[in-house]
Structures are given as structure tokens and as C-alpha cells.
């Protein structure tokens, strides 16, 4: 989504968010992410207004003090930015890819199932299986920090069974142009 992203060409406008909408976003984020209200409060204090940065193709970025925090595509789920995930790694369920896949991931390719199901990969156990379309944090084999944020293309159990094609699509990853932007 952010492989190519330049602030001058891709941002249509920045507007402060209405407080009623902010309330709705806060509630949605609390229900979608595994995060305590207090921690969210520390990231995004109630007093500080959220700024909505509108980008092309229905991509919205929400920033606090110019720092991107939340990404949303159209009406879809809210995704944290990678820098936020580095600070709070537990807010989304995680999947892992093996070492061979890191190179492709850093080039912005979607993650194929074999990379997730192989020995170096990681998928949530069957009792915590994820459905298709769930936001996930992508970790890499042997690495401490997350390497990308993605969305599952099929359920995790299906990934194990079919073991073919795209498993997780990338939203943002280490080294993309959103990563390069520390503030908007």
C-alpha cells in the first residue's frame, strides 16, 4: 500500500477530526486491537486531537502530533503503523515468516503460504485461528522486532491446509515510503 508514497503527490489534505468521530475511532480501535484503554491513552491522549490525513485511493492515515498512528483503507479495519507496533508489539495477533521470505517481504511482496507454514514460520495455533481479513503483525524468523503489518488473505487453518498462494497481504513494511516518513 505504501511502497510508493510521496507526501507532496499522494496527500490530498489534512483535517482535524471531529471529536464525535474521534470517539468512534477510539472505540473501534479498542475493540479491534488488543490494547488497554490506558495504553491507548498514552499513545493518543484524549486532549490531543487526531489529524486525518487523506491520501489517494481511499487510504486514510491518522496522526497525533504529526506522527502517523493509524492507517485505514476505505471503511476497513484500523491498522497500526509499524513504528507503533515496534513499541507495542502485542496489539495485533502475530504470524511469522521464515528467513528466506524476509528478502521478498522487504521488497513489498505479499507473503506466500509456504513461507508461513515452513519450519521457520509461525501461525497461530488451531484454537486461536484467524479468519480471512484479519490484521496481523508479521514477524521474521530469528528477529526480535516486527517486519511488517499485513492482512490475512485466507484463514490460518486454510493456509496450513492449502499451503499455496498468497497467505498474508502487506499493508506496510519495514523500509517502505511510509516508514521513511517519521512525521507528516
Amino acid at each position: 500500500m505504501f511502497k510508493k508514497f510521496s507526501p507532496s503527490a499522494d496527500i490530498a489534505g489534512q483535517t482535524p477530526v471531529k471529536s464525535s468521530v474521534q470517539r468512534a475511532i477510539r472505540a473501534a480501535v479498542l475493540s479491534q486491537w488488543k490494547i488497554e484503554p490506558e495504553t491507548l491513552e498514552a499513545i493518543w491522549p484524549k486532549k490531543e486531537g487526531l489529524v486525518h490525513v487523506k491520501c489517494r485511493e481511499h487510504v486514510s492515515i491518522y496522526t497525533v502530533h504529526g506522527e502517523p498512528i493509524i492507517i485505514q483503507h476505505f471503511d476497513g479495519p484500523y491498522y497500526p503503523t509499524l513504528r507503533l507496533v515496534h513499541k507495542y508489539p502485542y496489539i495485533l495477533p502475530k504470524v511469522g515468516v521464515d528467513r528466506g521470505a524476509i528478502r521478498f517481504l522487504l521488497a513489498g511482496a505479499p507473503m506466500m503460504c509456504p513461507g508461513l507454514t515452513s519450519k521457520g514460520g509461525y501461525l497461530p495455533p488451531a484454537d486461536a485461528a484467524l479468519p480471512a481479513g484479519a490484521p496481523v503483525v508479521i514477524h521474521a524468523e530469528g528477529k526480535e522486532h516486527a517486519v511488517g503489518i499485513g492482512v490475512t488473505k485466507m484463514g490460518t487453518e486454510d493456509m496450513r491446509r492449502i499451503n499455496k498462494d498468497v497467505g498474508v497481504e502487506l499493508i506496510t513494511y519495514l523500509g517502505d515510503e511510509l516508514w521513511a516518513l517519521k512525521s507528516l
Binding site: 488497554e36 484503554p37 490506558e38 495504553t39 491513552e41 498514552a42 515496534h86 513499541k87 507495542y88 508489539p89 524476509i102 528478502r103 522487504l106 528477529k143 526480535e144 522486532h145 517486519v147 519495514l174 523500509g175 516508514w179 521513511a180
Partner: peptide, 26 residues
Amino acid sequence: PPEPVPPVQVLYCAVCSYPPEYCEFG
């Protein structure tokens, strides 16, 4: 008592801006 969980302090490489464990891919 509501206590915000402190963020993990992540070190970023000053050269390529990645966490240093990913420098090898930069």
C-alpha cells in the same frame, strides 16, 4: 490502577533507519 504499559524502546540504525537486526537486508 490504570497504568499505561510502557512502550518497548526500539533502537533504530542511524544509517538505514531499520532496527539493527534488519541491517543485513538493507
